[in-house]
């Protein structure tokens, strides 16, 4: 049983892992253009439960560094649950349980004694619905750095400036830093959330359907932003918009009913998938 406490680690997981030491089957390695990618996240035999019901079944995959990985699949297929496992956001839900291993930067993040604060600093997250705090634009971006102890006003100014530039928002808000974030447009709010996540200097950015609530123009801006960020960050994006996945990602994983059906280069998935289910979904036969 997983409690809602952030620091505690489910006792059951330990037990389960001790029992079932499965043969270490190497996760599928990703090779692009014949070149081995550097795998920053490795997921091994992941099972996930909400109380008695299992949401993820034996998911194994490796996510390459500084690439954009898209996760697609019909509603309820487990893709959102999956990315919330990557920064332990599911810890805040009562009665959840994790089995298997998730190794990020060489460390199993469900190992007892894992510092969730450091993990989440390293693995930023942007949510489906933009959720800026009811504070000023400046205070929103400065929230993370302040939390982690940065007090010097000049350095804060710099972080805020840099984060807003990187999220392509600076030119629009530079004169409105002290305005409430709630006064920004929907698209601006979502980019502000990206800036807020970037301000703590993560390596990995998780995006849970970041454009699903936005109009087409704002969506384009978010997609452009992802394009610019890919050089510096590892991005994992959940989307139900297949065109978007095709446009922005290097790799794509297809989830169906809690299982990772297929994971490969985006180009391959969209042109010549190995599995029939993937093909059916991509061609719009269901989902």
């Amino acid at each position: 049983m997983v409690t809602s406490s952030l620091q505690s680690r489910p006792a059951k997981v330990k037990k389960r892992m001790a029992q079932d030491r499965q043969p270490e089957e190497p996760p599928k390695t990703v090779v692009k253009d014949g070149k081995m990618e550097n795998e920053i996240i490795q997921v091994k035999h992941l099972n996930f439960y909400y109380g008695p019901s299992q949401a993820l079944f034996d998911v194994s995959m490796s996510i390459p560094e500084k690439r954009v990985t898209a996760l697609i699949g019909p509603s309820g297929c487990g893709k959102s649950t999956f990315i919330r496992v990557l920064n332990r956001m599911n810890d805040i839900i009562d009665n959840t349980r994790v089995e298997g291993k998730i190794i990020i930067n060489g460390k199993d993040i469900y190992q007892p004694g894992t510092d969730v604060v450091t993990l989440r600093k390293n693995v930023g997250m942007v949510f489906q619905k933009s959720n800026p705090f009811p504070k000023s634009v400046y205070d929103n971006v400065a929230y993370g750095p302040r939390l982690h102890g940065l007090k010097d006003r000049r350095k804060l100014d710099e972080v805020v400036h840099r984060s807003l530039e990187r999220s392509a928002l600076w030119s629009e808000v530079k004169d409105r830093l002290s305005d409430s974030a709630m006064d920004l447009s929907g698209g601006q709010q979502q980019r502000l959330c990206v800036a807020r996540a970037l301000a703590v200097n993560p390596n990995i950015l998780l995006m849970d359907e970041p454009a699903s609530a936005l109009d087409p123009r704002s969506t384009t801006k978010i997609e452009d932003l992802i394009g610019e960020l890919r050089a510096e960050y590892t991005i994992v994006i959940v989307t139900h918009n297949m065109q978007q996945a095709a446009r922005v990602s290097d790799y794509t994983g297809f989830f169906y009913e809690g299982r990772l059906i297929e994971f490969n280069e985006t180009r391959k998935i969209f042109t010549n998938p190995d599995h029939k289910q993937t093909e059916d979904y991509i061609t719009g036969r269901f989902g």
Binding site: V117, N131, Y143, L147
Partner: peptide, 19 residues
């Protein structure tokens, strides 16, 4: 969603409550 955003930035429960 506010609380989630704060937790996702590495705040603990108490920090999230007060900030």
């Amino acid at each position: 969603s506010y609380k989630q955003a704060s937790l996702a930035l590495g705040a603990n429960k108490l920090e999230t409550i007060w900030r």
